[in-house]
Amino acid sequence: MEHSPVRKLLTEAGQRQVEARIKAAEAGTSGEIVVMVVEESSRYRHASVVGALFSSMIVAVAVGHFQGGDGMWHFLGVFVPLFIVFHELLVRFAPLRRLFARKGDMADAVGKASLAAFYAKGINGTEAATGVLIYISLFEHMVRVVADKGINEKVDPDAWPELVGGIVQGIRSGEAAAALSEAIDRCGELLSRHFPIREGDRNELSNQIRY
């Protein structure tokens, strides 16, 4: 856990706060709330290649201009090593790679990864199909809410964008724990209206933040 994505987002106290709020929210509903934090939803290899091509081409042209080099072989002699170096930098350092990742590609990757996580983590396996995933992808600066079919049949889908917006804003302002806690409270309120706590209800999914 020490080097997990959760630690990039929350302090240990913040993590305990969020997990306590999940427990409190679920005390009033038969629904299950899961929070998951990931480093990134895709490796964006295309962005690494495009970024390396763009960067090495600009530098190679500039070097050729100042050195007075002429011809394709001189250009390639500078361009190829630069491409290798820039590509390695982009692969290894996410903030640099993000400069060349298209927003549409990131949104698509987060959508697919959050849905895959919903099934991979068994959130779709609750007794009444009342699991909901709050998925946070750090590289893309994006949040998605994935709700099971039981919730989608009763909760207005327009309720989720407001919840997502609050989390994103809180993370940007350095108040991730507070924003997540507020979102979990809101999620608990929405679920309790349609899925109140039942006699003999049990905690089907762990309250621990996933990563």
Rank of each mutant, 00 (worst) to 15 (best):
L205A: 05
K103I: 06
F100P: 08
G104S: 09
I167R: 01
F54W: 15
V80S: 11
L90A: 05
I136T: 01
A177Q: 15
E140V: 01
R43F: 11
L10S: 04
I58S: 14
A109C: 02
P196Y: 05
P81S: 02
G71A: 14
A129E: 08
R193S: 09
C187A: 07
L9V: 02
V78K: 13
E2N: 10
T29Q: 04
V38A: 06
I22G: 07
P161R: 12
D148R: 15
A60G: 13
D158V: 07
S48V: 12
D70Y: 11
F195S: 10
L99W: 14
G166F: 14
H46D: 11
I58P: 06
R144A: 13
S192Y: 02
V132L: 15
Y211I: 04
I58G: 10
V146A: 09
L89Q: 01
G77K: 11
F66R: 03
H46I: 04
R97V: 00
I33E: 03
G122K: 03
H141P: 07
R43Q: 13
S173E: 14
A27Y: 07
P196S: 06
E40C: 05
E2L: 08
A120H: 06
V37W: 09
V132S: 06
L82S: 02
S41Y: 03
P161C: 12
V38W: 02
A20L: 05
V145A: 03
H3K: 12
E40A: 11
Q15A: 12
E140Y: 02
I167P: 03
F93C: 06
E189I: 09
N124T: 01
V63Q: 08
V50G: 05
V164D: 08
G111A: 02
F100D: 06
D105Q: 13
V35C: 03
E204K: 15
I84G: 14
A109Q: 02
